[in-house]
Design a binder for these strands. Structure first.
Lengths: 152, 152
DNA sequence: CTGTTATAGTTGCATATACAACTAAGCTCT
DNA sequence: AGAGCTTAGTTGTATATGCAACTATAACAG
């Protein structure tokens, strides 16, 4: 009897306290806010974040992109492929087939310009969903992870 | 000149403050913690969360599941299909073809029993990644969203 | 210089997610 | 009862994600 009671209460905490379930929920909701705001432009937040990174970095290697954005190389590979097709990115390096360096195109910069406004709207909606405190804490945690990574 | 400066600083804030990028990062890291902990059992957190919900609810309709877990019906549909195939779930209702009620199977309960330990490990790792405060805030936000939904 | 090793990037496979179009089954109104 | 409406669930398409296997190329060791 004891054992089944324990099991039940543990399963209840899996339901009531699971961190992953909660962050996944928020992830879905927030990703949605941004992706639907961006949908008129035929792009999603993920690709915008890649574009922003490349815009600021000037010319980045593949590996740097994956490390900084903490994106799996296969995800990056496929995204870059799609973005090249849409004309937002190009490969800057000619010499080496390997070690591709990525660069934003004029069309990519234009896209960034166009989405700024909807990004701001989305950011505001996300802020009101998470609240000031929640947003603050979240950003601190994420920034901490990035900083730690850079130091490495 | 002014305009391009504004653009640059806005793009910088897209890089440095975007909530979606941050929550997506944490989502990937945390999902990873749980999924790799669960991988010996051939299941991922998402399906476990469905199973837990159905276990606690006894017998649930499809719609209730989607509403409570805030899961898109197509995602739910395909997950349930896979879980039926693995024998963890079954459809309880016979009468109506529509309005399927879901029920956990003995194999499903057994699985829940087996994964409890690794779930606890993963939960602890996630806690130390987010910190006490972060976890607290996160849970409060998510629970608030659920409560609001229930009241509806 | 050549064979081995390390590394960059691609591709296959599986799950998760969302939206839209579709199907089917129950419900309602006349 | 039959026509149209509503709702449940499925399926198609696209992106995101992760792991593992593969390919091609660069670097290195002898």
């Amino acid at each position: 009897m004891k054992k089944s009671v324990d099991r039940l209460s543990l399963i209840k905490s899996m339901s009531q306290q699971c961190i992953a379930v909660r962050i996944r929920l928020l992830n879905r909701m927030i990703t949605n806010i941004y992706d639907s705001a961006l949908s008129p432009f035929g792009v999603k937040l993920n690709q915008i974040s890649i574009l922003v990174f490349i815009y600021l970095a000037g010319e980045v290697g593949y590996d740097a992109l994956c490390r900084r954005l903490k994106m799996e190389k296969s995800t990056a590979s496929r995204n870059i492929e799609r973005m090249k097709k849409k004309g937002w990115l190009k490969i800057a390096t000619v010499k080496a087939e390997r070690k591709k360096a990525l660069k934003i195109t004029p069309a990519g910069e234009e896209l960034l310009g166009k989405v700024q406004e909807v990004w701001e709207d989305a950011q505001e909606k996300a802020l009101s969903l998470l609240g000031e405190e929640g947003t603050d804490v979240l950003c601190k945690i994420a920034n901490g992870i990035w900083k730690k990574d850079k130091a490495r």
